[in-house]
Design a protein around this nucleic acid. Structure first.
Lengths: 292, 292
DNA sequence: TCGAAAATGGAACATACGGTTCATTTTATT
DNA sequence: AATAAAATGAACCGTATGTTCCATTTTCGA
């Protein structure tokens, strides 16, 4: 009773993240069964949101009364008010874009068609991000960044649709103090620039079907010259995948024939900043992060 | 009883989308109060998921018993089983990126730090898209596209961080057969190119704080020469907003000092494709709305 | 206009729910 | 080892919930 008085003085978490932090903070000081509930709650928040005290208790392997004690330990006056927080969490999640889109499609056929177009691109971007978030392989990423970290100059190879990504990488690397060279067609100097690259350098090549022949050819030459290639492409059958030491398969959703660049952009920024981080501070091995 | 027997032969929707389709299908044949509930349910699915029969009925302006009748009309044996579908819908939504991020941060502090960086950019992109989806104004969008539709040549103005967007717009407009001119610093010919623009043309100018002086200056000159400007920027106080006939405020989330481009990209593609659609087929005025 | 059938409102009902209480077990302290 | 304090389990209780039932109103066809 008294030991929960001081905690009641702090405002009770009304949102899930704060509650989560509170639970993790108290984890050590909770009684065994209560801690068991706490762990279950953080692992199965949806169950807490929808289940009944009895069903949750059964799933968590405790008595229903323990749930109430758990809530009271945290300062809530009962299980119900704790449950509200878990429900709010689900409420606040914004509607997914897929869902929103189908809604939009169903209504007004003619008007707001411009809005529908933008929504389409937003949905494509969102989906692409979602897919990448699930499919990206940590180890591939680490290898790519290690490889790029060792390079004196990073050459960036991309044409047409992929070019915006390349220009963003070049911009970011420049801001981060990493030497880089963007290969673009306009200057007409691509062959000369490429001939400077050595095995001490590295290449980021970006190309999606239908693959720009210039990008493929240049990647081939560079690879043959011993310059390691990191490729971002859309398929294992991509010509780029053959020449690459490390390659990422990125599945971008499309809308109206134009594929999103959102996932590729995020990956590109990840590579860029990852290299920059390695070079200052996190040098070599990754370690010594203080806390979360 | 009998008229719902044949519907019971079809499997009952267990997921929300199927339920939604079923309701829309039956909409016409439902009694007035039941239809009222049906409309409320589709408009406030979260309320159905979390509320009690009494609270929902009150919000929808009907008796609790009507809710049960509604569920039974659809073939469910009661309100509770219908509610399950609305709850499943919330359960199935994939975890949001914000949430996923905090989880990642909490666990393994040392390893997978590269992954954390990419996740950060994915989260920033996702958030930006989310915000745009909520804040984008349909009327502004329509005005911008109408304005661009009237242009002989579309000039695209952007430097530094915004340049990737500009290059993508130029690429897309080219593919769609819309005449455009990308203004870039490299050529050193910006002033000459700009001097060709007339009031029959239009400009898309993109700049975020800290605003590239070249972009601002060129937008000023073009605007003074009577060339209408569509601006994409980050604040009402942006210098670009002053010169623009139409301007969009885009709030991009950032990670590690680098702001996302995801929302800006989607908007840019929307403008681009919107104009192209207007020019072929949907030509000129938007009208002829058939229904609501 | 009349009558039957469907729809609706509202009260009554059974029960499943969260919360409380108390006996028992476990833990900590001296 | 003895005792006090905390934690736990399990039965109990009041209430709020979903559901059912019935009287009334509305709708539709003859």
């Amino acid at each position: 009773m008294d030991n929960m008085a001081d905690t009641a003085s702090e405002a009770l978490p009304r949102d899930f993240e704060a509650l989560r932090a509170l639970i993790l903070d108290r984890r050590q000081s909770l009684p065994k069964r209560i801690a068991q509930v706490a762990a279950y709650a953080l692992d199965n928040p949806d169950e807490i949101a929808f289940g009944t005290a009895a069903s949750i208790a059964s799933s968590a392997g405790v008595q229903p009364s323990t749930l109430i004690r758990f809530a009271q330990h945290l300062g809530y006056d009962g299980f119900t008010s704790l449950q509200q927080v878990f429900r709010e969490r689900l409420r606040e999640r914004t509607t997914s874009y897929e869902e929103r889109l189908t809604v939009v499609r169903g209504e007004g056929d003619d008007d707001a068609s411009n809005r529908r177009i933008v929504d389409g691109f937003l949905a494509a971007a969102s989906k692409s991000i979602d897919v990448m978030s699930r499919n990206l392989d940590d180890e591939t990423l680490d290898r790519a960044i290690d490889l790029l970290n060792g390079a004196e100059t990073i050459y960036i190879l991309a044409r047409r649709r992929s070019y915006p990504v390349a220009s963003y990488i070049a911009y970011a690397l420049g801001k981060l103090g990493v030497r880089s060279q963007l290969i673009e067609s306009a200057s007409g100097l691509s062959p000369e620039i490429i001939s400077f690259a050595t095995s001490k350098d590295a290449v980021i090549a970006i190309s999606f079907s239908p693959y720009a022949s210039a990008t493929v050819e240049e990647a081939r030459v560079l690879s043959a010259n011993g310059v390691p290639v990191v490729a971002i492409t859309d398929s294992a059958f991509s010509p780029l995948a053959q020449f690459a030491k490390v390659w990422f398969e990125v599945a971008e959703a499309d809308f109206g024939g134009f594929r999103s660049l959102a996932a590729t952009m995020a990956l590109a920024m990840g590579l860029t900043v990852g290299v920059a981080e390695l070079r200052r501070g996190r040098k070599g091995k990754k370690s010594a992060n203080s806390k979360g």
